[in-house]
């Protein structure tokens, strides 16, 4: 269970998060939706400790995430970054096995490579990809490698940051399906941020809408369409008219 209470974050005069309260139950897949610049990525980075909140608390199973052994905390997480964030100088298998090759419980190189190839196969990539460099792969393949890296060390929680951005609809569907399969198969807790509604419907157990630095609506995905919140309705139907101001 991840619990956020009154999380605030400002960058200079720009108050991005204004008191976010959110609970993500263990083993569930939550998708956070919201327009561009509403602080979805900042929220995710606050949980991971990449950005320090100005106020509020974030707890993982009752433990404050800012306290305790940081490496042990991060070892429980996997993350798929928006652009893949693969290390250019490393081969694909070395990217996937990055965590397995380092730290106190580092595996021998051969064993780490075998696991990396197995994870690549799980996301639909052939073993021949393992010895290529990230720059030699298409955008969709890079996302898959990022996904393989996120699950390589068997994390308890996986974050997906805009997993389908920049992909064609078919590849988006493939990635959404893969994410859903992996979340169910591994029984992990997942948090995805996106503004792609097809991703929301494919991935989510629960949905939370972030608007103006606050959680505007949260509930099961099955109740999303029937919800009466005008902000949520405008967003999920992509209407230009409504309470959310749009720049034209």
């Amino acid at each position: 269970m991840i619990t956020l209470s009154g999380v605030h974050k400002a960058f200079g005069p720009n108050r991005v998060l204004r008191g976010v309260d959110l609970a993500l139950p263990k083993g569930q897949s939550m998708v956070i939706i919201g327009g561009s610049g509403t602080g979805k990525s900042v929220l995710l980075k606050c949980i991971l400790g990449l950005v320090t909140p100005d106020a509020g608390t974030i707890e993982l199973e009752g433990q404050d995430v800012t306290k305790g052994d940081r490496d042990a905390f991060l070892a429980r997480f996997g993350m798929l970054f928006q652009g893949g964030a693969l290390f250019d100088s490393l081969k694909v298998w070395e990217n996937v096995a990055f965590r397995l090759l380092r730290g106190h419980q580092a595996l021998p190189k051969d064993q780490a490579r075998d696991i990396a190839i197995e994870k690549l196969r799980r996301v639909g990539l052939k073993p021949t990809v393992a010895d290529q460099f990230p720059a030699e792969l298409s955008g969709g393949m890079q996302k898959r490698v990022g996904l393989a890296r996120a699950i390589a060390a068997a994390p308890e929680v996986i974050f997906f940051d805009e997993p389908t951005t920049g992909l064609d609809p078919i590849m988006s569907g493939v990635i959404n399906t893969l994410i859903r399969e992996i979340v169910v198969e591994l029984g992990v807790t997942a948090m995805t941020i996106t503004h792609d509604m097809s991703s929301v419907r494919a991935i989510a157990d629960r949905v939370a809408m972030l608007h103006d630095g606050l959680i505007r609506w949260t509930g099961p995905v099955a109740e999303m369409d029937a919800a009466e919140d005008p902000y949520l309705q405008q967003f999920i139907h992509g209407r230009a008219e409504g309470p959310i101001e749009s720049v034209r």
């Binding site: 980075k45 991971l48 400790g49 990449l50 940081r70 490496d71 991060l74 070892a75 997480f77 996997g78 993350m79 970054f81 928006q82 652009g83 964030a85 693969l86 290390f87 250019d88 990055f98 965590r99 380092r102 730290g103 890296r149």
Partner: peptide, 16 residues
């Protein structure tokens, strides 16, 4: 470039 493409954030999440 690593910073701009979030590779440095990725390093942190990989406990490095």
């Amino acid at each position: 470039t690593m910073k701009v493409t979030e590779q440095i954030d990725a390093l942190v999440t990989l406990s490095t």
